[in-house]
């Protein structure tokens, strides 16, 4: 559809001799959160990395905001308006929180009003502003990684497993932050924590063996335990 912000058609990705993505078809409308679910090794992280240009697609097309971005260098894809929060968070450990944020503001100095908004979303960052990122806790690093992605307005956020290894209290705080974030941007979220995904997601795509095997509204998946069991081997009630 013409109004889709992101569209992947028949995307294949090889990493060395391994054929990871085997024809991914995925469309993201503008706004809201689309959650990418699937078992370990289904190809979720590779999908995000392929969109970001960190792996080059071996076949297929990737369209973003009306232009083809498949195979472009990563900096060009970032400059097109996509921000990426990797599974590893990849904060610059030797740099302070402030320096991490200064680098994230690529096109202009950090905007004061936007920074205040980010501090309201993640108050810890203000407190630890001059602290090297390497000494932050896992949850604080995750907040910084997300804050870095939104330091300037971006059209699409790709966020890979933000709750992995994070304390429940911080996950609760993150739900509030994501609720607010999705009002200003479109988010493609890879998540293993189904309860977190279900509480945030507007749409869902489920991957298996390098393909998208299901697309639909998150509410429909949450309501259909049989579908959950078939696609993910779990149900919301048993996956706390």
């Amino acid at each position: 559809m013409a109004e889709d912000l992101l569209r992947l058609e028949g995307v294949h990705t090889h990493i060395g001799q391994y054929h990871i993505l085997q024809g991914v078809d995925l469309a993201l409308p503008r706004g809201g959160i689309t959650v990418l679910l699937g078992r370990n090794g289904a190809g979720k992280t590779t999908t995000l990395r392929t969109i970001m240009g960190l792996w080059k697609p071996s076949a297929g097309t990737i369209g973003f905001d009306g232009r083809a971005i498949g195979g472009l260098p990563t900096p060009d894809i970032a400059r097109a308006g996509i921000a990426y929060v990797p599974e590893t968070m990849a904060v610059f450990a030797d740099l302070t929180v402030r320096e991490n944020m200064v680098l994230a503001a690529r096109d202009a100095p950090l905007d004061g009003a936007r920074l205040d908004w980010i501090f309201r979303l993640f108050p810890a960052l203000k407190k630890f502003w001059q602290v090297p990122a390497g000494v932050l806790s896992g949850g604080q690093k995750q907040m910084l990684a997300i804050a870095r992605a939104i330091a300037e307005p971006r059209t699409l956020l790709l966020i890979d497993e933000p709750t992995k290894g994070i304390a429940p209290a911080i996950i609760e705080a993150m739900i509030g932050a994501f609720d607010e974030l999705k009002r200003e941007t479109t988010i493609l979220l890879v998540e293993q924590n189904f309860r977190f995904a279900a509480s945030l997601g507007d749409r869902v795509a489920v991957m298996d063996d390098g393909r998208v095997v299901h697309r639909g509204a998150m509410a429909d998946l949450v309501a259909d335990e049989a579908l959950q069991a078939r696609l993910l081997g779990l149900s919301l009630d048993t996956h706390q």
């Binding site: 309201r120 979303l121 810890a124 949850g139 059209t155 609720d179 607010e180």
Partner: peptide
């Protein structure tokens, strides 16, 4: 639609967990 240049100035969502840092 592109992302707005400035974020909404709404306060943090109610009920957010208070975390002692």
């Amino acid at each position: 639609m592109s992302a707005p240049a400035s974020p909404s100035a709404s306060p943090p969502p109610a009920g957010r967990a208070v975390i002692v840092e």
